[in-house]
């Protein structure tokens, strides 16, 4: 079972007060800490687990700047066997559709049975690249996958639906699955582990080697562009609900109602 897993390097923004940069279209990256996209981490772990159980090879692939090497090395340390990194400044400004095109071009030269990606990326949150890639490659797919069971020539999966429901499907290989967080418990990747793969080869590609022309990627090759970004309006601290017990309870009911709880 040969598996390709697509990963992305994203900033960790959970605690950060993000700033809009001077273009107005992206955030200031200075001082931000980057790492592998959380969903992709589950995908890599799942790929490695499948390999450990069924044999085969795991190839990690990423599209991004030279710094993306850190996440690809991390994937190698976690257990991926090979790594491909597509780096080309001309791909900057690509939307999900254009990125999927780059990935599709890169994947054409790699044999695979299944492709795993994260459901979405922490940064743009599009949940679009994986499924688009499947379409470009002409293979079936399933999103929000919470369980994978490898069978002969097909894969039995569970995918998460709303309201605590799941559905079970069988999909013939080759196929692509976007992995939901919580599908497994990703193992820890130690510094020693990363040091051990420091010398491992990472294959690098650019648009030229992939046979893509500049107008197929970047803003020109994209369907959407981010025109501007802006922080959502925020309030500070708790709004204290005061009054008699009954009044307070009534106010809480309003909150419940607004939150769609009752």
């Amino acid at each position: 079972m040969d598996i390709i897993v697509c990963i992305k390097r994203v900033p960790e923004v959970a605690e950060i007060d993000l700033q809009v940069d001077q273009t107005g279209k992206s955030i200031k990256e200075e001082g931000l800490v980057f790492g592998v996209n959380d969903w992709d981490n589950y995908a890599v772990e799942e790929a490695v687990r499948i390999k450990e159980k069924h044999g085969g090879k795991v190839t990690a692939i990423t599209v991004g700047s030279a710094e993306s090497e850190e996440v690809i090395r991390r994937a190698l340390a976690l257990g991926a066997d090979e790594a491909v990194m597509v780096t080309d400044p001309q791909a900057d400004g690509s939307d999900a559709y254009a990125i999927a095109k780059v990935l599709a071009a890169a994947i054409k030269e790699i044999p695979y049975d299944i492709i795993l990606t994260g459901v979405l990326a922490d940064d743009d949150g599009c949940a679009q690249v994986g499924v688009t890639l499947a379409e470009l490659l002409g293979i079936p797919h399933a999103t929000l996958v919470t369980a994978i069971e490898i069978e002969e020539k097909q894969v039995k999966i569970k995918r998460e639906l709303e309201g605590g429901m799941e559905e079970e499907l069988v999909v013939a290989t080759p196929a692509l699955f976007t992995i939901q967080s919580g599908i497994n418990e990703p193992r820890y990747v130690s510094i020693m582990g990363i040091r051990k793969v420091a010398k491992k080869e990472v294959a690098t590609r650019d648009l030229g080697t992939l046979g893509l022309s500049p107008n197929q990627v970047g803003p020109a090759g994209s369907f959407t562009t981010v025109e501007r970004i802006f922080p959502p309006p925020v309030g500070e601290g708790a709004q204290i609900l005061e009054g008699s017990s009954d009044e307070v309870a009534t106010k809480v009911m309003d909150v419940f109602q607004k939150g769609g709880v009752i």
Binding site: L78, E185, P186, R187, Y188, V189, S190, M192, G193
Partner: peptide
């Protein structure tokens, strides 16, 4: 355990 990645989630 750390090198094998086999540590509890909270430790990770």
């Amino acid at each position: 355990l750390v090198e094998g990645g086999r540590v509890p989630k909270t430790i990770i």
